[in-house]
Design a protein around this nucleic acid. Structure first.
Lengths: 109, 109
DNA sequence: TTATATCATTGCAATATTACGATAATAAAG
DNA sequence: CTTTATTATCGTAATATTGCAATGATATAA
């Protein structure tokens, strides 16, 4: 076992779960927040900022890139990372959809 | 290793990461969506609805309860689960804070 | 070319998560 | 009291995630 039964769930449910993983580790939250604050930055900046090893930051960056929430632009020997605005909006809308679904409900338990 | 270095990050960053875990598995997304749609339901309903074993559903419910996003009310031999409105709003606000932080930024990369 | 800087990838170890059968625990029904 | 219904917990197995040192790859500088 130990493997998520993806086939049991809708595409939307799986998409939301994937998007949520961008925020489900404090290092990735910190990376996202720093990218917002600085507009863009390179791997080395984040190593300084977060205090994790270079390989670890690189790995988190790749996960975020796989989710699509960030993008990396090669600039010489550096890679400049930043938020991907389109995907950001997509994810924001997906979350707000759920948030509003509940809000529009009258009573609770 | 394999253990998250919680101490490196702010309380807010750790809180967001914890909250995001509520949505980071499709089964939990499905549970939350069903709770919204049905207002409230019991473990057995979710076993029917999702097609996972009773023990698995119970485990996901406990995680959601630990995060605080849902609450369980004992009714005889059953437990009626529903969204916790206060915590829901807290989490919603935390996410929207981040979403808006980016939105308010002018340019990107 | 040789060094330096930057980042990705690989390989490994440790912990976390996911899933489920079996078993307890509790309450209601008979 | 016994049975039934419902849920939680335990134990276990399998997979996923986290973290880092070492290494590789690429671009720039000397």
């Amino acid at each position: 076992m130990g493997v998520t039964k993806t086939n049991l769930f809708s595409e939307t449910q799986n998409n939301i779960a994937t998007a949520a993983k961008a925020f489900s580790h404090p290092a990735r939250v910190a990376i996202i927040q720093h990218l917002i604050k600085a507009n863009a930055c390179i791997n080395g900046d984040l190593v300084q900022e977060l205090g994790l090893a270079q390989a670890t930051i690189s790995q988190h960056l790749r996960e975020l890139k796989d989710i699509g929430i960030i993008q990396g632009n090669i600039e010489g020997s550096r890679v400049n990372y930043c938020i991907n605005p389109e995907r950001w909006k997509e994810i924001k809308d997906q979350f707000n959809q759920i948030f509003d679904d509940f809000e529009s409900k009258a009573a609770c338990c």
